[in-house]
């Protein structure tokens, strides 16, 4: 039986804009994925706890508030501490190019900015999960 890809979409911190992340959630659902949405205003700790409990293939963090360089180090620390080392972490939203480069060095696999078409996000997640292989 084919298991659907599990994705958690998260909004972290004081960022009340979730139209974009809901559009992405719908696109992923329509591509046959199981999508868990955290709701707004979560802390990095809450997001990682939930992502581990849900054993998602992909954790996608949407940020429109500019706090990416604070949030992602915390996320990676917790994931490592809990032994959830094979989770694919991606970012979406709006951010400066130099931050995107730094996040990639940190371990964020893909950064999909505001002009990314939904189908491209679907394709990217499918590719990343296929590359990782079964677990």
């Amino acid at each position: 039986m084919d298991t659907p890809i599990r994705v958690m979409l998260a909004k972290v911190g004081l960022d009340g804009h979730d139209r974009g992340v809901k559009v992405v959630a719908r696109a992923l659902r329509d591509a046959g994925m199981d999508v868990i949405y955290t709701g707004l205003h979560r802390t990095p700790d809450e997001v990682v706890t939930a992502a581990i409990q849900e054993d998602v293939d992909v954790l996608g963090v949407s940020l429109l508030s500019g706090v990416q360089m604070t949030v992602f180090p915390k996320i990676f620390d917790r994931l490592k501490k809990e032994g959830a080392d094979d989770m694919i972490v991606v970012a979406g939203g709006v951010m400066p190019d130099e931050d995107a480069a730094a996040l990639k060095r940190m371990g964020v696999r893909e950064i999909m900015l505001q002009d990314t078409p939904p189908q491209a996000i679907v394709d990217t997640l499918k590719r990343l999960v296929a590359e990782r292989g079964p677990r």
């Binding site: 659902r29 949405y37 955290t38 939930a50 409990q53």
Partner: peptide, 30 residues
């Protein structure tokens, strides 16, 4: 529920349970 068309799903129950989001004595699985 899963979508009868795409097989995908939006799992939104845990949004309503966020008060205990980091309590190790609570484990939520969707």
């Amino acid at each position: 529920p899963s979508s009868p068309y795409s097989g995908g799903a939006i799992l939104g129950d845990r949004i309503r349970m966020s008060d205990m989001a980091t309590d190790p004595g609570v484990y939520i699985r969707s």
